[in-house]
């Protein structure tokens, strides 16, 4: 199999991916294209990436384009990633929204599911404090491949040792072959939806809290702005937004405001007042 890929092919692929997902692949990402797209080319029966690109150029086959796009998403995640957002969810957000009978949470780029499962476990741990509150988690991602894994809830020994306290493993997982599977009750408590952040999120419903972590970093500023404003349009006026550690709304949009001294946590106006 030919393993070199021309600059022209890299930029063709970058364009395909950008148009579908908003993800930016800079020209120096040739190695990434090569390592991620070679398996796609092989699976789809092409001798090389060049042959795959030639086919895509000749006949725009959406299924192929999406396979290429999916392969270039970065799905790195782990349980209770960065810890602080989950502490803030427990210590700031839940008290601020304690009157809700249903707390609607959206994990807007949930990858293989560790983030929504972390929230579901957290809620189980504190439910005694919020007896009247039910958590309704909608977890979405553009990649159906990662959603399938998320929904199966099957994690390797390595994955369950990244961020997950051992007491949670015992309480919320069951053994499965050489791995661990999230117990059915927890798995079924989450709604899994394929969803592209470039689309209108009103199809998913309205939310009190949105986790949109570690995905905006891959978008250009206008896309970031559009995505954040669309998220705002489905977030309650007193609702909250969590971004990743390297992300901010500052200089991008006024739809959300940083909550003073709570890094990574944003509110729509009323949310800011309630938590501050």
């Amino acid at each position: 199999m030919n393993s070199t890929v021309t600059e022209a092919s890299v930029s063709f692929i970058a364009e395909v991916v950008l148009k579908r997902s908003g993800l930016i692949l800079s020209a120096d990402k040739g190695y990434l294209v090569e390592s991620r797209i070679n398996p796609v080319a092989r699976k789809e029966g092409f001798a090389s990436i060049e042959a795959l690109v030639a086919a895509m150029r000749a006949r725009p086959d959406e299924k192929l384009m999406w396979a290429v796009t999916d392969a270039l998403t970065t799905n790195e995640t782990f349980f209770f990633r960065d810890k602080t957002p989950f502490d803030q969810f427990r210590d700031e957000v839940l008290p601020a929204l304690k009157g809700r009978s249903t707390l609607r949470v959206w994990c807007a780029a949930c990858s293989t599911g560790q983030e929504p499962y972390s929230l579901a476990m957290l809620m189980e741990e504190v439910k005694g404090t919020y007896p009247g509150m039910k958590l309704d988690i909608c977890a979405s991602d553009i990649s159906e491949r990662v959603l399938e894994k998320a929904q199966a809830g099957l994690y390797s020994k390595f994955e369950v040792q990244r961020g997950l306290p051992i007491t949670h493993l015992v309480k919320y997982f069951e053994p499965a072959e050489d791995a661990f599977r999230v117990k059915p009750a927890l798995r079924q408590s989450i709604r899994w939806r394929p969803f592209n952040l470039l689309d209108d999120p009103r199809v998913l419903g309205r939310f009190d809290v949105v986790f949109c972590r570690n995905v905006l970093i891959y978008f250009d500023p206008p896309t970031k702005q559009k995505v954040l404003e669309r998220i705002a349009s489905v977030t309650a006026p007193d609702g909250f937004l969590f971004l990743g550690a390297a992300e901010t709304v500052m200089g991008v949009t006024d739809a959300f405001k940083a909550i003073p001294a709570k890094r990574g946590l944003y509110g729509r106006d009323a949310g800011v007042r309630k938590a501050a």
């Binding site: 040792q161 990244r162 493993l169 015992v170 053994p175």
Partner: peptide, 24 residues
């Protein structure tokens, strides 16, 4: 799970499954 549960009830605080690395 039975070993892990036994360890926790004997008073273990955490549990690493071999093979391990520095990150774990």
């Amino acid at each position: 799970m039975s070993h892990i549960t036994e360890a926790l009830s004997a008073g273990a605080n955490e549990y690493v499954m071999k093979p391990f690395d520095g990150d774990i």
